[in-house]
């Protein structure tokens, strides 16, 4: 199968869906001729014109609000938010308007929009361009959250998101835009709420999101060499969350580490660990370990930034501790 970058996969998904459905348009800062700073949407304006690939002023709340109104009235906008950190600017439009409209209207109004944005540290961008803020919006009922872990997922999840009748937020890891993966040409739809077992194992379950799936896979390689068999699970969407697959795996292995690049406290790792505690408690042979970004603003200095996010070595070390039955923090 051909290999394409995650960036190309996103571009391809948007183009395919825009060809299929006239009501779809793309809106955001520098999405047209500039193709965004990451060059993800390059070429789209040439095919679809400025009527459907709409450059906006630097006014995130404004174009987000416009997208919500357009979605309520027959359009299916794809909003490009240049950095995930800017999600704080659009919180009212996303969380008070888009997320609640269907419910507040008793099911009369729909908001079928996709908000594409990014996440991920270690790009030396410092505290306001490096955050992974998916847990904050996952907290709000009415929003679906997808986190592609490769070019394959990026295409399949985005196409599914565009066809969903709800507001969907997609967090792409900006460090993975040039990563290549096998991606089929043409139609590729990945259903929401269906986790992917990336690697089977019997001793410990590693649940990873987005780029942390790669971290988990590398950790599994390290552990395999030591005779520890790790299972790696990619939930693909955190809302909805496929707990069935995660529970089944943990009931088999009895041990689990959850890895996510959001800050560790009050985040995705905490949520999954809590649900495992509630739903698979009597199958756990050790505590569920959370591994998120450190609870510090992301620092600029490479010497500091690199230690704020989970690494394969760190995951493997915690896995060894779990296998040995050692206590954590006690």
């Amino acid at each position: 199968m051909r290999q394409i970058t995650l960036s190309t996969a996103v571009n391809e998904a948007i183009a395919e869906e825009m060809r299929r459905d006239e009501t779809i348009f793309l809106i955001g800062e520098d999405v047209a001729e500039a193709g965004t700073p990451f060059k993800i949407t390059s070429g789209l304006v040439e095919e679809f014109g400025t009527d459907r690939v709409i450059d906006t002023p630097i006014a995130e709340p404004g174009f987000m609000g416009i997208a919500v109104g357009a979605a309520m009235t027959g359009s299916r906008p794809i909003v490009d938010l240049m950095f995930g950190d800017f999600i704080f600017l659009i919180m009212d439009q996303l969380c008070n308007q888009a997320a609640k409209t269907h419910y507040m209207s008793g099911g009369k109004l729909n908001v079928p929009l996709v908000l594409r944005t990014n996440m991920g540290a270690t790009r030396r961008s410092a505290a306001q361009h490096s955050q992974s803020l998916h847990a904050i919006v996952a907290h709000i009922p009415g929003l679906k959250i997808a986190m592609p872990s490769s070019a394959f997922e990026a295409k399949g999840l985005l196409k599914t998101a565009i066809r969903d009748n709800n507001p969907v937020v997609i967090f792409e890891d900006k460090l993975m835009y040039q990563d290549k993966a096998d991606v089929p040409e043409g139609e590729l739809l990945i259903p929401f709420g269906v986790a992917n077992v990336k690697r089977e194992g019997s001793d410990i379950t590693l649940v990873g999101t987005s780029s942390m799936v790669q971290v988990a896979e590398k950790a599994a390689e390290i552990l395999a060499a030591e005779g520890i068999s790790a299972e790696v699970i990619d939930p693909r969407t955190i809302v909805p969350l496929d707990m069935d697959t995660i529970n089944a795996s943990v009931r088999k292995t009895s041990r689990c580490i959850v890895i996510d690049e959001g800050h560790q406290s009050f985040g995705v790792t905490s949520e999954i660990a809590s649900r495992l505690m509630e739903e698979s408690f009597y199958h756990l042979d050790g505590p569920v370990i959370r591994m998120g970004a450190m609870d510090v603003p992301i620092p600029f200095s490479p010497a500091l930034e690199d230690i704020t996010v989970p690494t394969p070595e760190g995951v493997a070390a915690n896995a060894r501790k779990l296998m040995a039955g050692e206590m954590f923090n006690g």
Binding site: S254, F281, Y282, H283, L284, D285, G286, G325
Partner: peptide, 13 residues
């Protein structure tokens, strides 16, 4: 009965 026994939920079950 004196000291608490620390054990994993699965081991207890």
């Amino acid at each position: 009965t004196g000291g608490r026994i620390l054990a994993s939920p699965k081991a207890r079950r």
